[in-house]
Amino acid sequence: MRLLTHNMLSCNIKGVTNGFPLRLEVEKFVEKEVDFSAEFLRNIFPKIEWKALVDAARSMGYAELPDEADSSMLDSDDFLKKFHHALLELHLEEGALICPETGRRFPVNKGIPNMLLHEDEV
């Protein structure tokens, strides 16, 4: 699971009002090279919760992202490269996602988070 996906996910257990961001429990992460597209990054940037991305990347040992970002930075190739790497090339392979409100743990195996809810959570 990429940090892009992590950045979009929010816990939807019944009654949870702020299910974002899911805390990352990293047992194993992998890096996979992905084709670079500046247009994709510019298009997605306004939808990214920046702080969540910075924290998630740090939890995988990648600390190159600036603490704050605004759209003027999208003109910098250096910024785009780092953004690309954090967003698309870092994958959580084994570990878990933890709901910030309830502490519920969603296990991640082989890169696939299990987001199935129990009956009393729907």
Binding site: C11, K47, E49, M115, L116
Partner: peptide, 18 residues
């Protein structure tokens, strides 16, 4: 990216991002 999820339980994504 893949997720194990039941669409009948609702999709857990932030608003307006897709």
């Amino acid at each position: 990216d893949l997720m194990l999820s039941d669409m009948g339980q609702g999709l857990g994504f932030r608003p307006g991002v897709i």
